[in-house]
Amino acid sequence: MATEIERKFLVAGDGWRSSVTDHLDIRQAYLSVTDTNTVRVRLSGRAAFLTIKSAGAGLTRQEFEIAIPFVDAEAMLALRTGRIIEKRRHIAPAGLLRWEIDVFAGDLDGLVIAEIELPAETAEFERPHWLGAEVTGDPRYGNSSLATNGLPSTGR
């Protein structure tokens, strides 16, 4: 079974930019959002994926990602629930781990969230000075909520 262990933070300032080694542009949309799971389609470059994630506010969730034809992913965007999320993901190495800093565009412009995937829930990691409030477990900052509900009132 595939699992994802992730911590999520708001970002304070632009100090992270000097650590970035790469970036990619992402468009994604949710095809289904239920109490037990989400189904998402994501396009990045010329790659496309269908992802199923278990729902929940904990650090660990089940995640299954399947590569799909790009043209199929584009067609699936029309089947979405809520808005298409557009963001540029910046990669900033952190030892053996890496930060993914998502700078949102469109209706979510101004929102910047940093995520780090961990090998275990208890794994230690360095907290860069540019990290803001932790929003792990806050459902308002989940991408499915951002797609269906928009920016949280405290998101800017």
Rank of each mutant, 00 (worst) to 15 (best):
87 K>P: 04
49 F>H: 09
107 D>S: 13
109 D>V: 05
134 E>Y: 00
49 F>Q: 05
104 F>R: 06
105 A>M: 07
88 R>M: 09
49 F>D: 04
87 K>Y: 03
78 A>R: 09
125 F>R: 01
43 L>Y: 04
44 S>L: 06
45 G>L: 07
63 E>Y: 09
90 H>L: 14
79 L>H: 12
50 L>N: 04
117 E>T: 00
49 F>W: 04
139 P>L: 10
108 L>I: 11
110 G>Q: 09
90 H>F: 14
43 L>E: 01
68 I>N: 10
68 I>A: 11
78 A>F: 05
130 W>F: 05
73 A>L: 07
135 V>I: 03
134 E>Q: 03
99 W>L: 04
104 F>H: 11
122 T>S: 10
77 L>K: 03
80 R>Q: 12
103 V>R: 14
94 A>S: 08
85 I>K: 09
90 H>S: 10
107 D>H: 07
51 T>Q: 03
52 I>A: 12
106 G>I: 03
78 A>K: 12
76 M>K: 07
72 D>Y: 02
112 V>E: 11
70 F>Q: 03
55 A>Q: 13
73 A>V: 09
56 G>S: 10
114 A>S: 07
125 F>E: 01
56 G>H: 08
48 A>E: 04
131 L>A: 01
131 L>H: 02
72 D>I: 08
52 I>N: 13
134 E>S: 06
106 G>E: 01
113 I>C: 10
120 A>C: 04
129 H>L: 08
72 D>H: 08
117 E>A: 02
119 P>M: 02
94 A>G: 02
136 T>F: 00
62 Q>A: 15
114 A>N: 07
137 G>S: 09
124 E>W: 03
69 P>W: 08
60 T>S: 15
76 M>Q: 03
72 D>Q: 13
47 A>T: 07
77 L>M: 13
55 A>E: 09
52 I>F: 11
104 F>I: 12
46 R>T: 14
65 E>V: 15
66 I>M: 15
47 A>N: 12
70 F>T: 05
66 I>T: 15
117 E>V: 00
77 L>C: 06
106 G>H: 01
116 I>M: 05
132 G>C: 04
125 F>P: 00
42 R>H: 04
127 R>C: 04
108 L>D: 06
138 D>C: 06
49 F>R: 07
63 E>C: 11
71 V>A: 06
98 R>M: 12
102 D>Y: 06
109 D>S: 10
128 P>G: 02
109 D>L: 07
109 D>N: 10
64 F>W: 12
60 T>G: 11
